[in-house]
Amino acid sequence: MKKIEVDTLIEGGHSMMNSVVIDTAKELSGAHFVVKLDELLKERGVTQKQLAEMTGMRVGTISEMVNGKGTTINKTQLFSIMAALKVTRLSDLYEVVLPEEMRKEYLMLKDEWVNERKMPLAVKEMYKKNVLKASGLSLD
């Protein structure tokens, strides 16, 4: 299992990514992107080379996925790996783990959003900030 800090992923992300996307992703600062593919291969007794042969993908691509390299995840490749390894949930391959306090806050906001059927104040504030930034305006 490989844990990669969200901040590290953002820093190494696509250079053409707009600042609103980056700033919104930074809301998850402290979270980790967890790559479980290496453990899954060990559990199944399958090498990266064998998985590449099973899926038609390059060994280098499998290696990048196992090591959490690259900036994008190709959904078709994920489906291919899921089919080859008979995986039923995406979370068996990858997972995002939030710090406990952030997880609790997000669950509370989600429940508020669902139960009251209106956007929580924290989300409204982020939305407003992002719309203003995207339009070239500022909050000041």
Rank of each mutant, 00 (worst) to 15 (best):
V6F: 05
L9M: 09
L9T: 01
I10Q: 07
I10D: 03
G13L: 09
S15F: 07
M16I: 02
M17I: 09
N18Q: 07
S19G: 03
S19E: 12
V20I: 14
V21S: 14
V21P: 00
D23I: 03
A25D: 06
A25N: 10
E27Y: 12
L28W: 11
L28N: 11
L28P: 07
L28Y: 14
S29R: 13
S29H: 11
S29F: 04
S29P: 03
A31S: 15
V35L: 12
K36M: 10
K42R: 15
G45F: 01
G45Q: 04
V46E: 00
T47G: 08
T47F: 04
T47Y: 05
Q48L: 04
Q48K: 12
Q50V: 03
L51Y: 07
L51E: 03
A52K: 01
E53W: 00
M54A: 07
M57D: 06
M57W: 07
R58M: 04
T61R: 15
I62T: 10
S63E: 06
S63W: 10
N67A: 10
N67V: 03
G68D: 10
T72N: 13
T72H: 14
L78V: 15
S80Y: 05
M82K: 04
A83H: 13
K86L: 10
R89F: 04
S91P: 00
D92N: 09
L93W: 08
L93F: 08
L93P: 05
